[in-house]
Write a protein that binds this DNA or RNA. Structure first.
Lengths: 247, 247
DNA sequence: CGCCCAGTTGAAGAATTTCAAACGATGTGG
DNA sequence: CCACATCGTTTGAAATTCTTCAACTGGGCG
């Protein structure tokens, strides 16, 4: 399918989608509730690169931290590797979300990031963002909020990983994806999963087989329909019940 | 035991411990590598309260977010409550660590915080900190670093919760506490656990009984000695091996 | 055409949880 | 001062859930 958000990349008009002020994600991205003039200043430091192809690596664990990345379209997975080489997926990130927030900790990225499908991102050089946010309080606030949200969303994930059944974990992930689609006025009940079963499993602290079995069970119970990565949520109430640790 | 850090609270001398510049935690706390004059400006907004007693609540989930808290001494646990009322402990925090970083996300605290022992904290009003950090780039950097470190440390916890055995989880927690004691030039091999077995279990995504069994096993294998909350690490190599998922 | 990859399904196994009982320390009231 | 209740912890045995190992399927692609 064509990447609508990027059809304007080539021409130089001022009113194309290639500026924060016209980006349809400005309502949920870093520019949120900034003045127009401030958005333009942010816009000036943001670098729009060419789209990443599926499988392309955006950055690797250990890379110098220079920028954070706002996802314009597509999907990215981030992960860490333990000393023993085991990987742990730390998140799936969709349009409007910002990644690289682990960088300021040590000035090196601790996660790696890879496109799960064709994905375009805005790179926001961090030192420039830092100095701009010193001058634009609203931007400073948004930046801190971004980091803090990452903290709370990870903490919410603790609950899943710590105390939830396999059904609950899978249901929670599906609902989270669903909700994030809805924010973009996309269908909350029908969408395609950007990641493999194995990725879901890793993220959820399960095995691939368990995730597959949960999918089968949910289909048998008419809660979802899954054909490969195409997902339809048939009974969102039931899914919510599952996500909240009932049986 | 007397709380040395607070013996000076009453008199008004300039060179007591009641200022960031003289706090023995300044090497790991927010003032890290700031100029003296800037530390004084930070100092001016920091509020040192009276110590919390064991069990006292510092803040509750849902409270308005007004300040972050630096722990001067003692220990604090933070947790969240799910919709169903299940609690998930999100962290144990020792001297030199900062909590409340979940606040900026929504301007309400999503965690609750409770003292696990007598604990004194500095409250740092966030709006003042925000404006001061606009003027002091080093402070802005430290603040962002603080949030980012929280993100990475939580991500590291994912690995444990997702893919580690009970032994590994417990070993990792003990080593984490040990390392944090060492930073304060306290014994890395002998200290008292501030939290209950149940708290450890909850944090690690296990049951109280499992944690207890792991403790027993580790004692049988001469890796640790645990008498109630008094812990001694006998074989730190073995503990490290356990923490890295071997058997 | 045949290989490979992602996913599904089955059966056996392992680890943790659950349920239950008992312990020691601490604190309270008779 | 002792009996009794409580709390945090330990330990045992059974139950459960998830994992592991293995075989099989179907689509995509050289």
């Amino acid at each position: 399918m064509p990447n609508l958000l990027n059809t304007c990349t080539s021409h130089s008009g001022n009113r194309d989608f290639n500026h924060c002020s016209n980006c349809r994600l400005s309502g949920i991205c870093l520019p949120l509730s900034l003045e127009f003039s401030d958005i333009d200043r942010l816009d000036a430091i943001v670098q729009k690169g060419k789209p990443l192809q599926k499988g392309e690596i955006l950055y690797r664990s250990g890379d110098d931290f220079t920028a954070i990345y706002a996802i314009r379209s597509g999907a990215i997975k981030t992960w860490q590797t333990s000393r023993e080489g085991e990987i742990q997926i730390t998140g799936f990130h969709l349009a409007g979300e910002v990644i690289g927030l682990d960088g300021p900790a040590t000035n090196r990225l601790s996660n790696s990031a890879q496109a799960l499908q064709t994905t375009s991102v805005c790179a926001i050089p961090f030192s420039k963002l830092e100095s701009l946010s010193r001058q634009v309080p609203g931007l400073q606030r948004n930046l801190l909020q971004l980091l803090s949200r990452e903290i709370t969303s990870e903490q919410r994930h603790f609950g899943l990983l710590g105390h939830a059944s396999a059904d609950t974990r899978v249901a929670a992930l599906l609902l989270s994806l669903s909700a994030r689609h809805e924010r973009h006025n996309l269908s909350a009940t029908r969408f395609t999963l950007p990641m493999s079963r194995g990725d879901m499993a890793n993220f959820l602290g399960l095995t691939l087989e368990t995730v597959s079995r949960v999918f089968s069970r949910m289909q048998k119970q008419q809660v979802i329909t899954a054909c490969g990565k195409e997902l339809e949520i048939l009974d969102s109430t039931a899914l919510h019940n599952l996500a909240h640790h009932s049986d």
